[in-house]
Design a protein around this nucleic acid. Structure first.
Length: 224
DNA sequence: GCCCAGGTGGGTA
DNA sequence: TACCCACATGGG
């Protein structure tokens, strides 16, 4: 049931061969990664893109600028990403914390002790394990594995997870079987997301699945 | 019209 | 620990 080192390496090789390196995260700066990580919580990335574009147009993709907006203004800008009241609170709480506790700046903060920084992120309102790991990996360039709904779904359909494991269990599983390599973790998570987005049922043009004869992301999608 | 999307926090048993 | 619910928009 639980994947071996070889399973995890083999799946990675197949996905990389299929999609090539993706060089995530789709953002220009570490701060933009943080904003995207919060905005994408239980939200389709397409909608996050609209909100990021609004923030960019408003010149608000920097901590000071975003923190200086009124909540009403920020809510308007990020409305397309959904949960806009909650997410406004979370974004402004983050920049407030950054300003008050880490005047040295986001990148310097994230470069500190990995475990301490993760614990600190998890203590912030609106930052759960997936958001914390996304920030560490994609904004801080630190080796931590990001587990998301796609990871759970794909590996459950491959028969390598039961599906009921906790976030921390799945993360530990990957991290104990793979070398602590930032680039590997970066690509692995990106490839899992890309694979699940290529979901055969939604993409009739989906090429042969690199993992199984019947695409494990599509369930009822066309075989091959 | 209905369901889902790269979660999180608060509440209850 | 294990569920439940609120939070909200846009696209298939």
């Amino acid at each position: 049931m639980t994947p071996t080192d070889d399973d995890l390496h083999d799946i990675f090789r197949r996905l990389l061969a299929r999609f090539g390196p993706l060089h995530w995260w789709p953002a220009q700066t570490p701060f933009e990664v943080v904003v995207g990580a919060i905005l994408t919580q239980n939200t389709a990335w397409r909608n996050v893109g609209y909100a990021i574009a609004n923030l960019h147009a408003a010149g608000a993709l920097a901590p000071g600028a975003l923190g200086g907006l009124t909540p009403e203004r920020l809510q308007r800008l990020i409305r397309p990403a959904g949960f806009f009241r909650q997410k406004t609170e979370r974004l402004q709480a983050f920049v407030r914390y950054l300003d008050e506790v880490h005047p040295e700046g986001l990148e310097t903060w994230l470069a500190g002790d990995r475990h301490a920084v993760r614990a600190e992120l998890l203590g912030l309102t609106g930052i759960g394990p997936e958001t914390a790991d996304s920030i560490l990996l994609y904004a801080g360039d630190r080796p931590t594995f990001v587990v998301d709904a796609y990871t759970r779904r794909l590996f459950t359909r491959l028969g390598l997870l039961r599906g009921s494991e906790s976030y921390e269990e799945i993360r530990a599983l990957f991290m104990t079987r793979l070398p602590a390599d930032t680039d590997l973790f970066n690509e692995y998570h990106a490839l899992i997301v890309e694979t699940c987005k290529s979901f055969c049922r939604k993409r009739p043009d989906c090429p042969p699945c690199p993992l199984q004869p019947r695409c494990p992301t599509g369930g009822t999608g066309p075989a091959r």
